[in-house]
């Protein structure tokens, strides 16, 4: 039962799944950058790419790992939060402990919950429709996911929802990236400095990358 009970093991799972999700974020962003091509090229290219992803067996396998990661990451976080709540006992009347840490480090659960809510919307609006809904075909005979994306991002409120969610994700990464390395046991001071720096670069570049797409589509397409 050690893997159920033990917090370090659970944290390890969170770290590993988190890092896998980070890796996915890069791939996902790289794929989505195709949306920034000129509209006609982008439509064909993006739909072809989506078709490839949903039919390649290897990608399929990885996608199961992805779903599992999201689930494990979520369930563990809930489990650990409950456990932490129990451990912390009653609260302080005056509490200034927050001076000692970053707000986003303390609010990972909140950020995570928001991200999860976003994921539900994100899956529903794109993944679900692509997989189980009906979509028109593009000129090459692939499902026109591009059209769906472009249509979605014509609403300003939707773009703003995305922007906020991406920001939330950014802060989650700002803590999560280096924290994952700590959890699995990277203790060398020098490498920790490097990892922290990479974490910041990663969080910022993911945020900017994912930010650009909806705004570009809203403004240009």
């Amino acid at each position: 039962m050690w893997f159920i009970k033990n917090a370090i093991t659970r944290k390890n799972l969170m770290a590993l799944t988190g890092l896998f999700l980070c890796f996915f974020l890069i791939i996902h962003l790289l794929g989505n950058l195709q949306l920034l091509m000129p509209p006609n090229e982008a439509r064909l290219q993006y739909n072809l790419y989506s078709d490839f992803l949903s039919n390649n067996i290897l990608v399929k396998l990885i996608s199961y790992v992805l779903y599992a990661s999201i689930l494990v990451h979520t369930i563990d976080s809930i489990y650990l939060s409950i456990k932490a709540k129990k451990a912390s006992g009653s609260s302080y009347v005056v509490d200034k402990r927050n001076r000692a840490s970053k707000w986003y480090s303390r609010q990972m659960m909140l950020l995570g919950t928001l991200i999860f809510a976003f994921l539900v919307i994100h899956f529903k609006d794109f993944w679900f429709i692509y997989k189980f809904g009906t979509l028109p075909m593009d000129s090459a005979g692939n499902k026109d996911l591009y059209g769906l994306v472009v249509a979605s991002f014509q609403d300003l409120w939707y773009v703003i929802l995305y922007a906020i969610s991406i920001l939330v994700l950014g802060f989650h990464l700002l803590h999560g990236f280096f924290s994952a390395f700590r959890t699995i046991g990277l203790y060398n001071p020098k490498y920790n400095r490097i990892v922290k720096l990479i974490g910041v670069i990663f969080a910022v570049s993911m945020t900017i990358g994912y930010f650009v797409i909806p705004f570009y589509i809203y403004l240009n397409v």
Binding site: K86, S101, R106, H175, S179
Partner: peptide, 11 residues
């Protein structure tokens, strides 16, 4: 009954 570490570094 101690909690786990989430690396906030406040300690």
């Amino acid at each position: 009954g101690f909690g786990h570490c989430t690396n906030t570094e406040a300690c």
